[in-house]
Design a protein around this nucleic acid. Structure first.
Length: 428
RNA sequence: GGAGAGGUGGCAGAGUGGUCGAAUGUACCUGACUCGAAAUCAGGCGAUGUCGCAAGGCAUCCGUGGGUUCGAAUCCCACCCUCUCCGCCA
């Protein structure tokens, strides 16, 4: 959520900056809502003040044992108008809030302006794509030849866009999560958390998935009619740890790392990446979350992105780092770096991590605050990034570490997790 | 699922219809004392919203949502959550 004062006082500037994201802010609609709000709210509060004064007078008269009938008559003249004003205000405010809740964050000034992913700016490339002296296979062929990737059975059990893994591939999948967790906790100072995978609507609203993106979520209706959602990312439960909290300043930054499955309905992406594990309804991810002091959040974004890069570097996977342009950023982000890993079979870089600073956008929705130098509550800044998406890391390892015989060389840093084995072969 | 207890400010904890946004303690801030600190003493200290150039005013907030009333932390209804015990269960 944007700061409401920014909308009131600098509406043209807000509209201009949102326009760089390709979002048209209906300023006339906002001004109309704001004018109505201002009138109804001040009017209601005036009437309430009058009522309070009169009611207090009744108390004084009763205490003295004097008659209060005259005051009662005066109050009753007020009450109908007060009631009407309160009702009108109560009717308006949800409309006002709904209008503001779907306005995306303002891009940071360092974000390049562009209308879609073609406007993104490459920041760096790391590693060099390996030269193969044989025909490369993609992860689907590699996985199925090894007997470890089985999409047909997953469809039978569940539906399309789900995967079944067996043997060495399943183990690699598990090991990757553990390797990443170990790295972030032991080297980067994150605290590991384990969280619910089903969350309430308030949490989804806090991080910005609701109200605008409900169709992207899996929704679970309980027998009593209440609703929970499957998390689309650990960002949701982990960031909501600080919802409605006031954090002691010396505790900042809070740094959490969390491995969860993620569930996305992928509505609207029919036909995209239908082959293989790139785009699934369920995938695992190790997520990094930081709750930062507002003065430190920009440094924290660089740091957090570096933590995600460290995983790719340790696995010796070539990647590039991309600064997303205004038109390609997510709803709540002020700035986002994507990390894209090299996939030889696709002969291209594909997103494997997305690291963003939300500034106070989520914190304002969540009422997540800390005590500042003046001992007053102030909104924190929130950041998160994938460190990394497990499914896509698995894909990258299969494709980048494949051998001519179809086996997979296990990256050196992972061998300890495989009892020292150097390869994944069929049946293992 | 059944029975009981409870949800009040950062924390603890009083308050059962009227100057209660709320005693008191603690934490925190300022000052005095001290070489400095501790202890002690004095003062200050909730949040959100809103109006205002500002000083400041006003409104709302005692788990949540309704209701009764001129007036609700306090009375009524519903719901949520926590704790204890019993039952069931990974």
């Amino acid at each position: 959520m944007l700061d409401i004062h920014l909308l009131r006082n600098q509406l043209p500037m807000v509209a201009e900056r949102l326009a760089t994201r390709g979002v048209t802010l209906d300023t006339a609609a906002f001004e109309a809502l704001e004018a109505e709000r201002k009138h109804l709210q001040t009017h209601t509060q005036d009437l309430q003040a009058q009522r309070n004064i009169l009611s207090k007078r009744v108390g004084i008269l009763k205490a003295r044992g004097e008659p209060a009938a005259a005051v009662f008559a005066e109050v009753s003249k007020l009450s109908a108008e007060l009631k009407a004003s309160e009702v009108a205000l109560a009717e308006l405010m949800p409309r006002f809030d709904a209008f503001v809740a779907v306005i995306p964050n303002l891009p940071h000034e360092s974000v390049p302006v562009g209308k879609d992913e073609t406007g993104n700016v490459e920041v760096l490339r790391w590693g060099r794509p390996r030269a193969f002296d044989f025909e490369v296979k993609d992860h689907v062929d590699l996985g199925s030849n090894l007997g470890g990737l089985d999409f047909e059975t997953a469809v039978k059990i569940s539906a399309s866009r789900f995967a079944l893994m067996r043997g060495g591939i399943a183990r690699l999948h598990r090991v990757l999560a553990q390797f990443m967790l170990d790295m972030h906790t032991s080297k980067h100072g994150y605290t590991e958390v384990s969280v619910p995978y089903l969350v309430n609507p308030e949490s989804m609203h806090g991080t910005g998935q609701l109200p605008k993106f409900e169709e992207d979520l899996f929704r679970v209706v309980r027998h009593d009619g209440s609703v929970l959602y499957l998390i689309p990312t650990a960002e949701v439960p982990v960031t909501n740890i600080v919802r409605d909290e006031i954090i002691a300043p010396e505790k900042l930054p809070l740094k959490f790392v969390c491995h969860t499955p993620c569930f996305r309905s992928e509505a609207g992406s029919y036909g995209r990446d239908t082959r293989g594990m790139i785009r699934q309804h369920q995938f695992d991810k190790v997520e990094l979350v930081q709750i930062a002091h507002p003065d430190k959040s920009w440094a924290a974004l660089e740091e957090l992105t570096g933590h995600a890069e460290a995983v790719l570097q340790a696995l010796d996977l070539p990647y590039r780092k991309v600064k997303l342009c205004t038109g390609d950023m997510g709803f709540g982000a002020a700035k986002t770096y994507d990390l894209e890993v090299w996939l030889p079979a696709q002969n291209t870089y594909r997103e494997i991590s997305s690291c963003s600073n939300y500034e106070a956008f989520q914190a304002r929705r969540m009422h997540a605050r800390f005590r500042n130098e003046k001992n007053k509550p102030e909104l924190v800044h929130t950041l998160n990034g994938s460190g990394l998406a497990i499914g896509r890391t698995l894909v990258a390892i299969l494709e980048n570490y494949q051998n001519a015989d179809g086996s997979i060389t296990i990256p050196t840093v992972l061998r300890a997790y495989f009892g020292g084995a150097e390869r994944i072969t069929a049946g293992v």
